[in-house]
Nucleic acid binder design. Structure first.
Lengths: 147, 147
DNA sequence: GCAGTGAGTTGTATTTTCCAACTTACTCGC
DNA sequence: GCGAGTAAGTTGGAAAATACAACTCACTGC
């Protein structure tokens, strides 16, 4: 990174700096599922307890997770997502779709039933025209250069 | 992982197994931007050259990247995304949106102009009803249990 | 009391990652 | 034709992150 040019400026890279470490997105998955306690997250993710501790502290620092005491004396906390954290649900949704399509073709481990009653088929579209987001979009701005 | 219960079965976890390592999604970002060569990817991501080599080999093995020779003798290759790899663009799009909203509020490094002419505002919706995907969806299936 | 639960903490072994330097095989300018 | 530059790696050693199991502390329930 030192000599010559800097890497591309990019919100993807910045986001991954916050949630891109191993286990982090799985922790957020558990919180979205409603699992609130340490041992539950350990069980469902398979992460080591020490790693989980450091990840949860970092997520709290980043404003993605909030810690709420449910017992003093043995000081114990429940973990909740903040609004900022809940907005990561779209990331998880899209990752799940890709995995369902390309890795678990036969039978997906989880299906989601949408509020409309149908099985959820998530698509990323442009809020203005409703067409797929990846349909002929072009990047502009200082991070868009490709030398 | 050994004693007691297994972690949650989940396509998110499976996807991250393939593209969740550090640098991997940034490599895919570069390929989506049209950068095809090793040194370009090194420059734009900031990844170490040895790491990049192993990541590209793994991605090739996973069927996400295809390697095409453009010179023999010094054997040199260009890297392309397969259809499977291009489908990860939605993942990047959604990660970018979160970063734009929560980390680069002032001025996003890249804006995308959609084919409709407007600035792209990507939203994840249900393909059936068009409403936001995260609106009251409920999980079912063997990976949906929350003990 | 005594087993069990819950949330960590600690110590050590193993894996990854980082970084800089080196290599090979050209191509280009003069 | 000769040195500089480009391109895509490979190598070796240091530094950091991860994994794993065992241990602690403060209860709770029987």
């Amino acid at each position: 990174m030192a000599k010559g040019v800097a890497p591309r400026e990019c919100s993807v890279a910045d986001t991954l700096q916050v949630v891109g470490e191993r286990w982090t997105l799985l922790i957020i998955r558990e919180l979205l599922y409603g699992v609130r306690r340490f041992d539950g997250i350990v069980r469902n993710t398979g992460a080591a307890r020490d790693i989980l501790t450091t990840r949860l502290r970092k997520l709290e620092e980043a404003g993605i997770v909030r810690r709420e005491p449910y017992s003093e004396h043995p000081p114990r906390y429940e973990y909740h997502l903040t609004a900022k954290g809940r907005e990561l649900s779209d990331v998880l949704t899209v990752l799940m779709k890709w995995g369902d399509r390309h890795l678990n073709t036969a039978d997906p481990p989880v299906r989601w039933i949408h509020v409309c009653g149908e099985r959820l088929d998530p698509v990323v579209v442009c809020a203005h025209c409703g067409r797929p987001a990846n349909e002929g979009a072009r990047p502009i701005g200082r991070g868009a250069l490709t030398p």
